[in-house]
Design a protein around this nucleic acid. Structure first.
Lengths: 143, 143
DNA sequence: CAGGATCCTCCCGGATACTG
DNA sequence: CAGTATCCGGGAGGATCCTG
């Protein structure tokens, strides 16, 4: 069986990006796959929610904790550090007792929410369609 | 309900959480936060990559498997079933021997990729800024 | 109050084998 | 070829305790 695979278009695989003909560039980028990048950034459970929470106003750690509601201190801390590291969030420590730490979006972080709005709008608009598709699926198979 | 913005309040908490601090639930006729919805849909490791792979052309299971490269059969199978259930992907079985199954995007699935492009474009444009922020962070602390 | 350290649990997801 | 069933290890992430 001569079925040894010749990968035809590996342009959005991790790392192994030997550049070759990409018929329609579309979502596959050069070098690192942009979709992978995006996923690495916002694919986790909390980053987006933190950004959304900070969108209207600067918040302190514990306030953020309560606002999101179902995130643990550990995860919030990790998420914030990552967001700070990536330049999405700015952290300000006020040398007071008790300590006060405020988090606010940077311009970069704010600019990121822009395209996110498109996604949210999509979810809004097509929620019914998705629901319908699920119902149809259940009717066809799930039953 | 007009096209709503990113939540200004606690309206993006998961339902089933006893509310204590914030008064108004603001938007959301019923407890779903759009951001949570989006995350639930594309937050997983593979959905987006599958959609992207199917964007230019209809593909068969094993082809898809190789195209993505680092996904297991199990996860691809699960992902495809979820995408089919949600109406993003259509599955066609050809009664042949050996069996042939093709996956293609539905209009819904295709429309979803539209706002995704915005995100990809953002990642493209700001990749350098993120990298710079990381370098600055490392210089400040990581060292 | 902000968050690090530690422990521990659960489940995601890869590998493999099997079926139609 | 197109999946499903089973096993299993590693990591995500919650709970708790502890510091400054």
């Amino acid at each position: 069986m001569p079925s040894h695979d010749l990968p035809q278009d590996v342009s959005f695989q991790r790392q192994g990006h030997t550049e070759l003909t990409a018929p329609p560039p579309l979502l596959t980028g050069e070098g690192g796959c942009p979709i992978r990048d995006v996923l690495d950034r916002i694919g986790d459970q909390w980053s987006l929610l933190v950004l959304a929470a900070l969108e209207p106003e600067t918040l302190r750690f514990n306030t953020l904790l309560r606002r999101i509601g179902d995130v643990s201190k550990q995860m919030l801390s990790r998420t914030l550090r990552r967001l700070e590291e990536d330049g999405f969030v700015h952290r300000t420590v006020y040398p007071e007792v008790p300590p006060r730490v405020e988090y606010r979006l940077t311009e970069l972080g704010r600019s990121f929410l822009e395209p996110m709005r498109g996604l949210v709008r999509w979810a809004d608009r097509h929620q019914a369609a998705v629901e319908a598709a699920r119902a149809a699926y259940r009717a066809r198979i799930g039953e």
